[in-house]
Design a protein around this nucleic acid. Structure first.
Length: 470
DNA sequence: AAAAAAT
């Protein structure tokens, strides 16, 4: 027992204690009350529970006391057979009273979304026609995608749901009136607006889910919005454990963990070591390019092979580069591709995403708008035209010298969904780029192989072959 | 600077 306790402490990174932050949620209770359930067949996920509840791992969905209609959704609509690891460990923690908060870190494409969607659907009182569960996402695209999963999984139930994202159209009738749907999935601004306009009664909300929670709680993310929503909902709830907060993400850096520990008291946790975070399922490469033009040459070569590849996402750092690269590849280069970023209106964004998801477009140039959560099984190649960098407030227009490791991991996660073959190509053209790549490799403890010559068709093909794409 | 959204 003592050993297990030590182990868990290490995993969660209690080094933050040195900085004098209270660690209510992340501190391990050393008394007998705390139970650690170590999975014999899976040491990669660490489960830490609070209180005296014992959670059985769910080997089958039947173990979870789900309604018959929900089981039908899982088997018939989703084609699920048995719970994934995160689902078998996480769902019992979510669904057993007392309904404790949960911080869950799970690999990209490990069934995270299905886990919290199933959690929301199972806790709805079908006879109460009011919002009971809310899910907040960082982008409009992710909210729409999550609601689609929810509608599919809940198809055979009578549960109603609605998307709270900006519609573009102003105060029409559809924008007023009370919300009676039982589940709301949306982005922070619209949810905040609906709450402040009293469009629904917050008193019945018993579950609040943050997708991509680390970003939702980050200083340069949506921390203020998220905090306000949690506080409002906690206040409108009757008992201390009335509102169950679930935080899901593939990444939680130390800064965010500190804040999580302040926001979540007496919660359960699931964590994965950072070295074990899914970067092994996609094969990563770096291509050294002398200049920006060379980067486009590499992309040209890849598009020439195009037909044999699946869909491709090219990530860039700024909206401006998204537009420019699109211009260069499509208008000037004659390659049919699209691009997406936050400057486009909602109609255009929806259209671009739909075209890509329907397979009408093969190549999509994107800002980090699509870095997280975007799920398209046919994407097997991610190209980092620019590497993701931390935001540097003192020099907002220049890329920082520090890489954004979490965003890098999330971008990689767009390729090779659910264990499929995938590749990531990092295009580097100067010393700062090389430094960023080195830092990323060091952070994850990985080696990214170098494509010998950017001008060589053979070298590039060889890399894609090695990744299993050709 | 990206994103959300309201201004």
């Amino acid at each position: 027992m003592a050993n297990t306790t030590m182990d868990a402490n290490t995993t969660i990174g209690l080094d933050v204690e040195e900085e004098g932050i209270s660690l209510d949620a992340l501190t391990i209770d050393e008394t007998e009350k705390t139970k650690f359930l170590v999975e014999p067949d899976d040491s990669t996920i660490k489960k830490v529970t609070t209180g005296d509840t014992i959670y059985q791992t769910a080997k089958r969905f039947e173990d979870l006391n789900l309604s018959k209609d929900l089981l039908t959704g899982l088997y018939v609509e989703m084609n699920f057979k048995t719970p994934s690891k995160i689902q078998s460990i996480g769902l019992p923690m979510i669904l057993s009273p007392p309904y404790r908060d949960l911080v869950a870190q799970a690999h990209n494409g490990s069934g995270k979304t299905a886990c919290f969607v199933l959690g929301m659907l199972s806790r709805i009182d079908i006879n109460l026609k009011a919002p009971q569960a809310i899910c907040i996402c960082p982008t409009r695209e992710l909210a729409i995608q999550n609601l689609e999963v929810l509608k599919r999984m809940g198809k055979h139930t009578q549960i109603t749901s609605i998307c709270a994202v900006p519609t573009g159209k102003t105060s029409l009738n559809s924008d007023r009136g009370p919300i009676r749907d039982q589940i709301v999935v949306g982005t922070p601004g619209t949810i905040k607006k609906w709450m402040s306009h009293k469009r629904f009664n917050a008193g019945n909300v018993k579950m609040l889910v943050f997708d991509e929670a680390d970003h939702m709680l980050a200083e340069d993310g949506f921390k203020d919005d998220s905090e306000r929503i949690v506080n409002t909902l906690r206040k409108s709830c009757c008992a201390p454990l009335c509102l169950q907060v679930l935080l899901f993400s593939a990444t939680f850096n130390d800064t965010v963990k500190k804040f999580v520990s302040k926001m979540i008291k007496d919660g359960n946790q699931m964590f994965v070591k950072k070295e074990e975070l899914s970067l092994e399922s996609v094969k990563q490469f770096k291509v050294i390019c002398p200049d920006e033009a060379a980067k486009r040459q590499v992309i040209d070569k890849i598009l020439e092979i195009g037909d044999k590849l699946g869909q491709i996402i090219i990530f860039v750092r700024t909206k401006k580069s998204a537009k420019m690269l699109h211009q260069a590849l499509d208008t000037e280069g004659g390659w049919k591709c699209t691009n997406i970023h936050g400057d486009y209106d909602t109609v255009k964004r929806d259209e671009i995403v739909k075209e890509f998801k329907d397979g009408f477009t093969k190549v999509l140039i994107a800002t980090d708008l699509l870095a997280r959560g975007f799920d398209q099984a046919q994407v097997n190649l991610v190209i980092n035209y620019d590497l993701p960098t931390q935001y540097n407030p003192s020099e907002p227009h220049n890329p920082s010298a520090e890489p954004h490791n979490e965003v890098y991991l999330h971008r990689c996660g767009r390729a090779g969904r659910f264990g499929r073959k995938g590749a990531v190509l990092n295009l580097l053209c100067n010393d700062p780029d090389m430094m960023l790549m080195e830092k990323i490799e060091r952070h994850f403890g990985i080696h990214v192989s170098q494509v010998p010559d950017y001008r060589s068709d053979e070298d590039i093909s060889a890399a894609l072959k090695e990744a299993g794409l050709l």
